[in-house]
Simulated scan of single mutants.
Amino acid sequence: MRMPFLALAFFLAAGSQSIAAQPAEQIAESPSRLLAEDVRVAIVAGDAQAWHDLIKWDGVDDITRAAIDRMTESVLGRAVESVAIEPLDAANYEPYEFKGVRYVLNGEPKGQVTVNFVPEPPLSQDSFTMAFGVEDGRAVILLARPDGQ
């Protein structure tokens, strides 16, 4: 089951291509490969600061920030089954409107990262997906921001 605020934070669960399934020469030291490992480490370690440092916060409003804070509380410290870097499914990151505000991603998306958790009933969230971009040679998780900011 997916998190209830997926659209707000531009999350999406989709088919994945595991990092392990990619040829080593394609992922060695690539920003997306490093992001996948950093995401895994931050979640498993329960390190909120490391997790927040992976996110691009530019232009993010209080609504999105609160949604990410709730998501952070629910995933940090969980056992991660896999982290996959996937091609961007652009149709799932189209601008949308929420409470009269038009939201767009706060950067240029290059792909998406999906985290799959080891099932832990009765927890309902088994995975999440977020878009990422690359800025200054570093992959960052992108969030929704009000258009025009």
Rank of each mutant, 00 (worst) to 15 (best):
H52P: 04
G111V: 08
A36P: 05
R102H: 08
Y103T: 12
R102T: 14
K110V: 12
A79L: 12
E94V: 09
E81A: 15
S82N: 13
T72R: 13
A42H: 03
G77M: 04
K56C: 12
N92V: 00
V104Y: 11
M71E: 14
I27G: 00
V60I: 14
G137R: 07
E108D: 10
S127N: 13
W57H: 15
V101A: 10
V83E: 07
L143N: 09
Q22F: 01
V101G: 05
N106P: 15
R70I: 15
E120S: 13
I43L: 02
G100F: 00
F117Q: 07
R102I: 10
R70L: 15
A45V: 04
K56R: 14
I27L: 04
D136Q: 10
S32F: 11
T129A: 10
V83S: 09
T64H: 05
V75M: 07
Q125F: 08
P119R: 04
A66D: 11
R78V: 01
V140D: 04
I63G: 02
K56V: 04
A21P: 01
A21G: 04
L34P: 12
L123E: 11
R78W: 02
I43N: 01
T64P: 02
R145P: 03
E37S: 08
I19V: 15
L54R: 11
P95L: 09
Q22K: 03
Q49P: 06
V44K: 03
I63T: 15
Q22L: 10
A48D: 14
R78P: 02
D58C: 02
A50D: 14
I85A: 09
E135K: 07
V118M: 07
V118H: 04
M71P: 02
F128C: 08
L123R: 11
V104I: 14
K56N: 14
E94G: 11
I43R: 01
D58K: 10
A42C: 05
L143S: 04
G77N: 03
L76D: 04
S124Q: 07
A91W: 08
Q22G: 00
R138E: 12
L142Q: 09
V134C: 15
D61L: 13
F98L: 10
M130F: 00
Q22S: 02
V41H: 06
D62K: 09
V134K: 15
T114S: 11
